[in-house]
């Protein structure tokens, strides 16, 4: 999983079956020091509470689909938690 910052939302009424009611957010992946790294992605919000600007963690690939209400939907990034604190050494 990686850290990410929620930077926007995507609304799509016409989408693949099984994705009804799934909220899509634009997430900027971050390195462990919370600096942007790589391109933004559209992630499904599996905690239903991530808001703009929030620090989240995101799971990728098939495991993202495992976080959805309907199994095996075409989702490759999912927000699975909101970060309260990142404590680093060094």
């Amino acid at each position: 999983m990686q850290l990410g910052r929620v930077e926007g939302t995507v609304v799509a009424t016409i989408k693949s079956e099984g994705l009804e009611g799934v909220r899509f957010l634009i997430v900027q992946p971050l390195d462990k020091h919370q600096r942007p790294v790589g391109d933004q992605v559209v992630a499904a919000d599996a905690v239903h509470m991530a808001g703009p600007g929030e620090l989240v963690y995101v799971v990728g690939s098939r495991e993202a689909a495992e976080a959805m209400p309907v199994r095996f939907v075409p989702v490759d990034h999912a927000i699975v938690g909101i970060v309260d604190e990142v404590a680093l050494i060094g």
């Binding site: 462990k32 599996a46 905690v47 976080a67 938690g81 909101i82 309260d84």
Partner: peptide, 21 residues
């Protein structure tokens, strides 16, 4: 292991699990 992530709002699977960076 260079750090930990504290998160109270998460997908149920991660409840009470320890997240390490």
């Amino acid at each position: 292991v260079s750090g930990t992530v504290v998160s109270t709002i998460s997908f149920p699977f991660f409840d009470s699990k320890r997240l390490l960076i």
